[in-house]
């Protein structure tokens, strides 16, 4: 049986290192992009809506005057269009005749962050929302 030459072995090792490096780069970069809206959600929204979006953040004590929206409730979330979600994030609950306990975030979040949040909420509810 023919043994691989030193050159062939060296080439294989270099290839293995390159493949490993590319895989590490891919796997470490992907979550960073994918998790950005999630990071924004967890930082700003989770205090009322909970880290998983069930409406159970630490602010929601028994005295909390309203129930923050449970984003996992696809039936309710389907009643809202993406534009509705964007409006309520930017201008607060009263902009859609809901509670002012949802404050306006228009001076806090960038347009990109708001768009990312809308997509993230659709990921949580696994629903497309009202179309048109």
């Amino acid at each position: 049986m023919k043994q691989p030459s030193m050159n062939e072995r060296g080439l294989k090792e270099v290839l293995a290192i390159v493949v490993f490096t590319v895989l590490v780069a891919l796997f470490s970069a992907a979550p960073a992009f994918a998790s950005d809206p999630e990071k924004v959600f967890k930082f700003y929204c989770a205090q009322c809506h909970g880290l998983t979006g069930k409406g159970d953040g630490p602010n929601v004590t028994k005295d909390f005057p309203v129930s923050p929206r449970n984003f996992t409730n696809a039936k309710e979330m389907d009643k809202l269009s993406d534009a509705d979600l964007k409006n309520v994030i930017l201008d607060g609950g009263p902009s859609v005749s809901k509670s002012p306990m949802m404050p306006p975030w228009s001076k806090t979040l960038t347009a990109e962050q708001v768009d990312g949040l809308v997509k993230h909420l659709r990921g949580i509810c696994k629903c497309k929302g009202k179309q048109g």
Binding site: Y44, Q47, P103, S106, K107, T108
Partner: peptide, 9 residues
């Protein structure tokens, strides 16, 4: 910060 910006609102 986690608190909304109210300046301007």
């Amino acid at each position: 910060k986690m608190m909304p910006v109210f300046a301007g609102l």
